[in-house]
């Protein structure tokens, strides 16, 4: 089963809408509450990343009986150094974004921590694609 959500760049008032909508689906599917927690935390971090750092993007969630796969794809500008971006506390967020309570540099590592598998590809031309797998 597939669910798709368009994410607008820079619209912080809507950051979290996709994760909330998908959370409702997971509850309807009676997914273990602790697994829902992990999925939603990872998804929310990814959603905020698209809002805060990208030119906009899309989240596609596929549910199968044994796992959830989530692809977060944006249109740029890409992450120059993925290894550095994965480090806890590393952030390129502007002071304005930080003032809104985002941009603490926990996003990618939090996603990694809550997923069973994570795969990032990024380039200046194609933007960033993060794939998350969470087992049910």
């Amino acid at each position: 089963m597939r669910f798709e959500y368009d994410i607008e760049a820079g619209n912080f008032s809507k950051a979290g809408d996709a994760s909330s909508a998908f959370k409702k689906v997971l509850k309807q599917l009676n997914v273990d509450p602790q697994v829902i927690k992990r999925i939603v935390i990872a998804l929310y971090e990814g959603e905020v990343n698209i809002v805060a750092h990208s030119y906009g993007g899309k989240i596609v969630c596929d549910i199968e009986p044994k796992k959830v796969s989530i692809v977060l794809k944006d249109t740029g500008p890409g992450i120059p150094n993925i290894e550095q971006a994965m480090q806890e506390g590393f952030s390129t967020a502007t002071p304005a974004v930080r003032e809104m309570g985002f941009g603490a540099g926990m996003g990618l590592c939090n996603m990694n921590r809550n997923a069973n598998a994570m795969n990032i590809t990024s380039s200046a031309e194609d933007g960033t694609r993060v794939e998350l797998i969470i087992n049910l």
Partner: peptide, 22 residues
């Protein structure tokens, strides 16, 4: 203990069918 009222079915495949119906 949790007792999720939003769950459509204990079986995830049946729940997915119901979700499609909804």
């Amino acid at each position: 203990e949790p007792r999720n009222i939003m769950s459509l079915d204990d079986n995830i495949e049946k729940a997915m069918q119901k979700l499609t119906t909804i």
